[in-house]
Simulated assay, not measured.
Amino acid sequence: MTDSYFRTTVFVLMACLGYTGCTTVEKTESPESITVKSNNGEYPDYLYQYSIIDALLSGVYDGDLSVGELRKKGNLGIGGFNRLDGELYMNEGEVYKIRYDGSVHKVPDTEKMPVAFVKHFQADTIFTLIQKGMDYENFKSRLKSLLNCNEMYAIRISGIFPEMLTRAPAPGKKPYPPLAEHLKENQYEFGLEDTEGTAVGFCLPAYMGRVNVPGFHLHYLSDDETSGGHVLDFVADSLYVEIDKASGFVVQSPDDERFLRADLQKDRKKEIEEIE
């Protein structure tokens, strides 16, 4: 590679959400220098997902994809485990389970899941986002102003969070109810304070509704690997943001009776908004 492949461009923007700070966007590599990785040899630089969000919403809480197989599809992502036994967090190929009791566990390759969304992550845009007292809504608003609403992005953010609100579900019992109904009685929230760590996930366009979660969907893990979960809210003054734009997405449909019998005709948009 020549030095031209590593040109750096710096943009300084004024903060516009109640604090005069700055946003610095540093492109660490030119697009032609990025080594394209493949999910399965046919779909380079794609978001891979096992099952669809509407199947989970309808009560399909069991699947046959193993963690070992998932690792072949990407190194960063989110999802859940069979019976809804905790939130799935993947970063740099390591997979963790954050359970309803707040515990965090590394997961063996044999464990299976009903839904997962992953990508071979290689950031093409990196920047530091600065705003005193920035909450999750501020973060999403500011990031949306920098992204194209019709594109798909994998995202990783890291920093110190004076406040972080997360959740994890307790395992379901058969016959499984729809997800929104299950979470009314089986969602456990964790109010973390002065936690340092990394959140990973995706920002997806509205047209992907019924297949995936439109908008932002992040899971968090603390650096000491003792706490985390599905991100509901946070407060931070500075965040290191890495973004990887996907070229497209590919869906693997579960080949079993649970998925085939699921009610996937119903419009569950309101249910997604309720649980997110």
Rank of each mutant, 00 (worst) to 15 (best):
D54P: 04
I272L: 07
L232N: 10
K269F: 03
T198L: 00
F259L: 05
P178K: 11
V211E: 05
D237G: 15
Y220M: 13
A116H: 01
E271P: 02
M113T: 14
K119V: 04
N138K: 13
K73M: 15
Y240I: 10
L179R: 12
C149V: 15
D224C: 03
E163N: 13
Y19I: 08
D101R: 06
F139M: 15
Y240N: 10
R7Y: 07
K119D: 02
K119A: 06
D54I: 01
M164T: 10
E87D: 06
R99S: 11
L146Y: 09
E92A: 09
A262V: 04
L264N: 03
T35A: 05
C149D: 12
G197N: 04
Q122E: 14
K266C: 01
D256Y: 15
L165F: 05
A180K: 05
A236D: 13
E42A: 09
T23I: 09
R210T: 06
S222Q: 05
D244R: 06
D224A: 02
M134T: 15
G197R: 01
S238H: 04
D109G: 10
S30V: 13
L165Q: 07
Y188A: 10
L179K: 10
D244M: 08
D256K: 09
T226F: 00
G63F: 12
Y19Q: 13
N138D: 15
F249R: 05
K112I: 12
A262S: 12
D101Q: 03
G248A: 03
I53D: 01
L192D: 09
T23M: 00
D62F: 14
P162D: 15
S145M: 07
L88R: 01
D62P: 03
V231Y: 04
N212V: 11
K270A: 08
E196K: 08
D45I: 00
F117M: 13
Q122W: 05
A154E: 02
G79C: 09
T198N: 01
D255P: 02
N39F: 03
E257L: 01
L70I: 12
L88W: 05
L143S: 03
D45R: 08
E42V: 13
N150R: 12
E271D: 11
N39M: 05
P162S: 09
E225H: 14
G209M: 06
A116L: 00
S103C: 02
L84D: 08
D62T: 14
G21E: 10
I34Y: 02
K37Q: 11
G63D: 13
P169V: 06
T226E: 13
Y48P: 00
A236W: 07
E69M: 14
L47I: 15
A262M: 02
R261W: 02
F81N: 02
